[in-house]
Amino acid sequence: MLKKQTAAEKQAEAAAAHLAAVQALFVDHLPIVRSLVLALWPDFDGANDIVQETFLTVNRRAASFKLGTDFTAWVASIARFKIKEAWASKYRSFEILSPKIVDSLISTMPGESDRQLELSALKECMERLSPKAGAIVEMRYEQSHSLKEIGDRIGWTAGSVHVALSRARMLLRDCVHAKLAKAQ
């Protein structure tokens, strides 16, 4: 004979379902969370930590989120808090934006975009980079090397690596922008 569920069991089941739903929303919104955090905390490792901390808090506070309301705003406010927390700690080793500017930027963050379209535009645009610039971008973004480490490998100064990276990013920004405008 099937055992009848107690009220407590029902409640626990509902809580578990709610947590799973919130976790699903988090995963759906992960690209936007990552974008937000990496923009406001450009160091890859630090950004990873903050996204991880954001997830832990989302998990912990899942019960306070009402399904059907604006998840982006809710998770962004948690990520923003985590950025401020990291900012306040002694973790940072570089100059990061002050909380006031962070708030101002978050309020003007663009909405969701077509990630796959953007990525395929970026792939095409990257073919326009010189082999050297492509290699520098790969060392920075794929292998997470610092500017100095990249410079040591190719016999450049960190300053020259920064200039080459900045130029590559600007070229890619303009190229991706042009491709997306054309696609629309």
Partner: peptide, 9 residues
């Protein structure tokens, strides 16, 4: 956006 996309790619 480019910083993010480069990292994601």
């Amino acid at each position: 956006r480019i910083h993010n996309l480069l990292r994601e790619l």
